[in-house]
Design a protein around this nucleic acid. Structure first.
Lengths: 341, 341
DNA sequence: ATGAAAGCGCTAACAA
DNA sequence: TTGTTAGCGCTTTCAT
């Protein structure tokens, strides 16, 4: 049976003190004799006293809860965000309340409602694509840091990733190495994210003075099977690209299988830039050059904004941060092979 | 500014009612006129009323919080557990407070302490290998469901996975198909999990009347690089195994790369059983035969035990559940090729 | 240096 | 059907 835990009064009774004195002793207030503090702490320890955050919250009018609303934990990206935010919270003695919307705006509404019952000092939210108006209304009366794809009718701090920068960084890197025939495997515009990434590709290619060739650009669902198939197709072309950019993590894995199956020399036959950092990159000696989401920085930025809730500083215009992707140069990219003839 | 939200009194004042009446109306108690209920609900809606769970908890002496303590969210297995438990919680209108110990028992202690401040009705915990005695002491006075690798000094419900069953199921499946030369790639006993899985292999082989051949058994770190290397080595043997069991998810991925690189026909040249379910299995037409952790069942079992907290039913001896792995037959396993000569 | 009293928002017992 | 009262555990005045 989960026995009811001891309260301040229990400690007070054990020491013939009043419970406010015990409270002040534990909070290390000045004006309590060191000796009393020591006795109180000792007794608290002995009784297994743990403060009741509900009572504290009720009294103080503010809780130590940070709400985190994410669409999906099976996505390694969001899982990494959750991990980092959890780390940040524990470092600041904050409670993390986690809600998973599964991309369902109806569910998101009920989760937000439930979350607000805990009166979180801040909600860090990656909202669904089309949140219900009620959800926005609820969040408007709370302090909310939006991440990833912000809903613009909700003001407050926003931490996003500059979506087009992934392609730009990858392409710039390849162009600098001398590549001109660059293959691109990405999510098609019908799927989430597709459009922005494709736009990034076009911008980067234009900036490099290259044109986006139809047959070098393979768009489809962002899964390993398509990455495999599309990369196979690119490698099988009569005049294959000298470099390939695989623009999402699942596509990268599929693409890696394709390279492997063809026993393509990397970067001898073809240079490769993949998306995301993963364990299996180590299979290639020297690793794979990759473009990654700035997960740690994103999570830390959001956490810090969250922890500022309640301070005056945030009254001055909501800070918005837009982080670029990061390039990690490894052994899978190099100059293109000399053309024959 | 996160304005202070309206309270029951605000609603009561707006309608010339007493706040307990409003409370009962919102809780749909009988003995309140339907008309009043309607008016109250409407006004609550209009004012954006959201209950204060701290006040409710303080009054009722029990919260709707479920604590979830996990070692690592970047591990896809734990991420999937978190996802499912979060789903279960939202279905039951419970709050999920997440804590990540990172395998650090010191940190685990401070997280448990912080968690208990919220007076969770239950803590679902995958404890570190050697929890601090204080951690155990704290949890002893709470209702705690342990998952995965339980600490036996802490009583209460336990939900585990029958570690040796993965190998048993895989081997039995292969033996039934007629295989005798079976390769095994697994985590060595020095690494966590290693021992139990290896024991599972030995049991299964013995049960099948087969002996564990030294050169068919490759043990090392549970990562893709080792899986790749070990599988390559198995395939390169003069007399290679006719089937291979890759016993963890990262090893499976590495092994898949090796099969691919050698252009091994699966299951023609070699049958393969992998561990875990993943997107990339779809690259093989018909998929890969796999042995998976019963993630959903494990999470649901833990959640249900958690939701029972406070009921009398749990007084009767702590229910312990030990779930077996699951076999998913796909196209990567078949009878061994005919021996030559 | 310590105690007494009040009140945060809610619900449950009792009264009307 | 509704109102009154009390109290959960804590912190914060204010008094001693």
């Amino acid at each position: 049976m989960a026995k009811t835990r001891p309260t301040l009064k229990d400690i007070a009774a054990a020491l013939n003190l009043s419970h406010p004195t015990v409270s002040r002793a534990l909070a290390d207030h000045k004006g309590i004799s060191p000796e009393t503090k020591a006795r109180v702490r000792q007794t608290a320890e002995r009784l297994g006293y743990v403060a009741n955050s509900s009572a504290r919250m009720l009294r103080q009018g503010q809780s130590s809860v940070i709400g985190l609303l994410l669409p999906d934990m099976t996505n390694e990206f969001y899982a990494a965000i959750a991990q980092r935010v959890a780390d940040d919270c524990s470092a600041q003695n904050r409670q993390l309340v986690l809600s998973i919307s599964a991309g369902d705006s109806e569910r998101e509404l009920s989760l937000v409602r439930a979350l607000l019952e805990a009166r979180p000092s801040c909600v860090i939210a990656a909202l669904t694509e089309k949140p219900k108006p009620e959800t926005i209304a609820y969040l408007r009366n709370a302090y909310c840091v939006q991440i990833m794809y912000p809903h613009d009718e909700l003001d407050g701090p926003v931490v996003t990733v500059e979506d087009s920068s992934g392609a730009r960084i990858a392409i710039e890197h390849l162009v600098k190495l001398g590549h001109e025939r660059i293959g691109f495997v990405g999510p098609s515009a019908e799927f989430a994210l597709g459009e922005a990434r494709l736009r990034g590709l076009r911008q980067a290619m234009r900036a490099a003075g290259l044109s986006v060739e139809e047959h070098y650009t393979r768009l489809g669902p962002s899964d390993a099977a398509f990455g495999y198939e599309a990369t196979q197709a690119l490698l099988a072309l009569r005049c294959p690209p000298t470099a390939i950019y695989l623009s999402t993590a699942p596509l990268s894995l599929g693409g890696a299988f394709a390279l492997n199956a063809r026993q393509a020399k990397v970067p001898g036959d073809v240079s490769v830039v993949v998306a995301g950092g993963a364990d299996w990159h180590a299979i290639w000696p020297g690793g794979l050059t990759s473009v990654t989401l700035p997960i740690t920085e994103l999570a830390d930025t959001a956490s810090n904004l969250a922890f500022q809730a309640g301070r005056k500083s945030r009254a001055k215009g909501h800070r918005s941060v837009c982080l670029p992707f990061e390039l990690h140069e490894c052994a899978s990219t190099g100059p293109p092979a000399q053309r024959r003839g």
